[in-house]
């Protein structure tokens, strides 16, 4: 076993080349990543447009609310609107549930908590991240869905499988994302600003509300958008509790569907090249567009933060 330095010395490389080596390696790593991302984009886009190109389905059809991929007793219709609406809906409600909790927790950790409390909450957050999504789904299916059905039937949860169940499970899953990013946003608010505020005679709550929160606002917004991105991509846990009803979402208590859950439901049973399979790729492309939109939003927010 020779040391790296020794093995370098024995090679034929000149001093300049040796100095250059780390730069080349990192450049290679960056190049590979960019190439992979580009290939993925090209591949998904190519497959995603086959529904229109190869099968001749009009583009307008995907904005129809009717999903009828097998002909049966009527014509086929590849309307993706129920899935798009479902994905956006389940994601939005999850963010509404998770944001106050996460931002509150982040504030507690950054501004209020004594060191010992932070020592508990931080690992607790990490454990949260480590739980596999299938476990969240399983818990949702065995605890949440029956609970909603038996105890909250009066509110309209006749089946338990519902938009709300999906959002609640997702809210738990995106909690750590929003918390840790907004925690960082609070940490970078300069100590001087708090000190100046306190010096003017404000209480700690007033300092948090009027100084820290506004200063960290774009950071919090970034955190929420990152959380929503995570929510949009989640498939398994959501699929297990929303009931997968391929119609436009009708209410928080009713079953609904999402892009990701429909892709996982159908992909094993469709064959490459049939319009049905192509429609699943189109769903993937739509998901990519949604996630791209969020990337753009995050970058805009980050730009604003630097400018401020």
């Amino acid at each position: 076993m020779t040391s790296p330095a020794a093995s370098l010395a024995t090679t034929e490389l000149g001093l300049r080349a040796r100095l250059d080596l780390p730069r080349r390696i990192t450049l290679l790593a960056a190049g590979v990543i960019v190439a992979i991302v580009l290939l993925l984009l090209v591949f998904i886009t190519w497959n995603g447009v086959q529904l229109f190109v190869a099968s001749g389905v009009p583009v307008a059809e995907i904005f129809s609310p009717t999903w009828q991929p097998d002909a049966g007793s009527g014509p086929t219709s590849f309307g993706l609107l129920p899935f798009i609406a479902g994905t956006l809906g389940v994601m939005a409600v999850a963010a509404v549930i998770a944001t106050p909790l996460s931002v509150g927790l982040a504030l507690f950790m950054a501004e209020v908590a004594p060191t010992w409390a932070r020592r508990i909450t931080q690992p607790a957050m990490e454990v949260f991240v480590g739980i596999p999504s299938v476990v969240y789904g399983w818990l949702g299916l065995t605890l949440l869905v029956p609970y909603l059905r038996t105890n909250l039937q009066g509110l309209g949860f006749t089946l338990g499988f519902s938009w709300f169940a999906g959002s609640l499970v997702l809210a738990l899953m995106i909690l750590p994302t929003i918390t840790s990013i907004s925690y960082d946003a609070f940490l970078v608010v300069p100590r001087d600003m708090r000190a100046a505020s306190m010096a003017l005679g404000t209480t700690r709550w007033q300092a948090i509300r009027h100084v820290v929160l506004p200063a960290a606002a774009t950071g919090i917004a970034t955190a929420v958008v990152m959380g929503m991105m995570r929510a949009a991509g989640e498939a398994l846990a959501v699929q297990m509790v929303i009931g997968n009803r391929p119609v436009m979402p009708t209410g928080l208590t009713a079953p609904m569907t999402t892009l990701t859950s429909q892709i996982t439901l159908d992909m094993g049973n469709t064959v490459a090249g049939e319009p049905w399979n192509q429609a699943l790729w189109t769903m993937g492309l739509v998901l990519l567009v949604i996630s791209f939109t969020f990337v753009v939003i995050v970058r805009r927010l980050a730009g604003r933060r630097i400018a401020a």
Binding site: W67, L159, F161, Q239, G243, N244, R245, P246, V247, P255, T257, T264, L265
Partner: peptide
């Protein structure tokens, strides 16, 4: 399917 649940 619009009134049903779907499981995989």
């Amino acid at each position: 399917s619009g009134q049903a649940l779907t499981e995989d």
